[in-house]
Design a protein around this nucleic acid. Structure first.
Lengths: 361, 361
DNA sequence: TTGGTGCCTGAATCTTGCT
DNA sequence: CAGCAAGATTCAGGCACCA
């Protein structure tokens, strides 16, 4: 371990300049959460007229894609120089920037190992109903070069995942509540603080105790805090003194776990939820199928979007069932039946029959 | 609809050349599943499928990416020209190529709307245990330009997903079993046949019946087959005669759903607009009727012309609601309530109740 | 203590159509 | 094309507060 490489410190300054002052090949793993270049335009309000506190910081603004690419190439080039030949890098982004990150990683000679989807348990909805809910972010995990003998703690990941291989899609909540750092006014300190559970999994998967982890965009300090907790060395770079102060306090509050405490605990399983529409789009109950109540008093037709239609009335299986029976509510799964081999079968049986979608975790 | 644009056909040839022969702006939606061809180890193929000879360690990876980028720019440029100004494109890929696809889409002026994660219900495990199970593919959904008034069937997607907004992560099975096309030896005909459920959701979300859908990489023909089944027009391009023959047979087996079976939950914007004044003039809510907000905090009186009055303030149901709550805007239909059998009912219910005037028509 | 209710908030590229 | 008005639009989780 060379003496000219600082460790367990937050270095203040522009990440490219600071990295230029550091020696080659001393870093085992990098986690980078660079600006996303969101290009937000106006103000956005929720249906209740409250205003969304969006990211409007100067550090997220770039003139155009070329400027963003130039910045990205600069810091990724230095990052690659600092990385040990067997080291890996994690980069997180959204559709605004992640395609540029990935292409430049490849151009610079990194070797992509996985793209990992962080599926957010509680994303912000799409308030205007103009797109799909943007419910995930993407992490790219790449080795310094194709020949890298990179570290992947396969068994730890499998154990963490109830003894089945960890997949490339991770279901984790946002950083909210007490975990979120706040200023003295109770407002969030940093607009994009990452959850500790995300960094926990990243570091558990791709580093060993004693490894050196670099975060060029330290922000609120989730990476160094989790590195310290998990017995890793860290090095973080940050420009803003306020973030540095808050991150340092946060790191100081951390106590490294004892070796035996680092043993993995299985993740909580997500309960599967099967929408009626999934049986329609997969052709199990195609559009046009007729449904009946148990006594064949009422009848409805399945529509392509999973709604059901009876005369001029349309709604979900639950809503239409309630409407047709003048009931305040109705469990459509047990109310509606379809014909199978001449008999009426409640549609609820579809949820209990063997079906790959039941593993929906 | 211009005469020089073929429809409901598979055109044989190189997709860039064939697209060059087609007119501008006649396509409503494109679905593209381009080849990856980024194998940097082992046998190397160019995008035109020819094998690169002399593959060894001296091969310059950058040249390979450059070749792929050149090919990608060529077909995406033509695709953009064929697209109607309000049209959208779907492109699917994995981490090998999707970052290049996304960056080039942005460079060409497309406007990304969502990146969608197809989470595979039954992915192939990672046999060597050296990475996370690669359990997803990424679709990019983009409008031709930022100004496009693109189609998104929000209500249909919400209905399909049990009345909650459809998220950007979709859980769907791979194409297997009877759905998978096989040759006479029982081997799969095409290596990357996409499941029908995926195209079903794509087309249901972003097209209307009668729209024209283009697939520049037709392959086994999932796109045209689903387009036909769903009452959309299609145009597909494919270079291999074997795939064309199999896809055409597959399309011929499809029967379009009847028009009434294709209807989905309509967006509010597309239902006939009913002015508030019509309820006043028909005596449903006669002038003088009192309206309240849900909590009875504010009160207004209906005027003969369909405006509402509160103290010295008068305006449309929307304008007055906004005024009285100091909000920038207000949906008067859901804000205002009237008394019916002692309870407060939103005036919006009037728009959903059967209308005696229209029933009489 | 516990359970129910209500409020707040999260990396957001978030309207359409008529005059 | 600008200006203006109509009107469409939210999910999950954490936490405070109260009964």
């Amino acid at each position: 371990m060379s003496e000219d490489m600082p460790r367990d410190a937050i270095l203040r300054g522009d990440c490219v300049e600071v990295m230029r002052s550091l020696p080659d090949g001393q870093v085992d793993c990098i986690f980078a959460d660079p600006p996303y270049n969101l290009q937000l335009r106006g103000e956005l309000r929720r249906p209740d007229e409250s205003v969304v506190d969006g990211v409007d910081d100067a550090w997220d603004k770039f003139d155009d894609y070329a400027t963003y690419d130039h910045f990205t190439r600069a810091w990724l080039s230095e990052a690659r120089r600092l990385l040990h030949k067997d080291g890996t890098i994690w980069v997180i982004g959204s559709y605004h920037n992640v395609f540029r990150l990935g292409a430049i990683l490849q151009d610079l000679g990194f070797w992509i190992l996985n793209d990992i989807i962080w599926r957010k348990a509680n994303p912000m909805p799409n308030f205007r109903g103009r797109r799909f809910t943007n419910a995930h972010e993407t992490l790219i995990w790449a080795a310094r070069e194709p020949q890298s003998k990179y570290r992947f703690n396969y068994q730890a990941m499998k154990t963490l995942n109830d003894d089945v291989q960890m997949r490339s899609d991770w279901y984790l909540p946002l950083c909210t509540g007490n975990e979120r750092l706040r200023n003295r006014h109770g407002l969030k300190l940093h607009p994009t603080q990452k959850p500790e559970s995300l960094l926990y999994r990243v570091l558990l998967a791709s580093t060993r105790t004693g490894d050196t982890v670099l975060d060029p965009f330290c922000g609120s300090g989730t990476t160094p805090a989790m590195a310290k907790r998990m017995g890793r060395r860290y090095l973080a770079i940050e420009r803003h003194p306020d973030y540095i102060a808050a991150a340092q306090e946060r790191i100081d509050r951390e106590t490294p776990l004892a070796e035996e405490q680092l043993a993995v605990t299985p993740a909580r399983r997500e309960t599967p939820r099967i929408p009626f529409g999934s049986f329609v789009e997969r052709g199990v109950l195609p559009a046009g199928t007729e449904l009946f109540d148990r006594a064949r008093r009422v009848c409805a037709t399945v529509a392509p979007d999973g709604s059901v239609v009876s005369g001029s009335q349309r709604g979900s299986i639950h809503k239409l069932g309630a409407l047709l029976t003048n009931a305040p509510s109705c469990n459509g799964w047990t109310f509606w039946h379809f014909e199978r081999e001449g008999a009426l079968v409640p549609i609820d049986v579809l949820r209990t029959e063997p079906d790959p979608l039941r593993e929906a975790g």
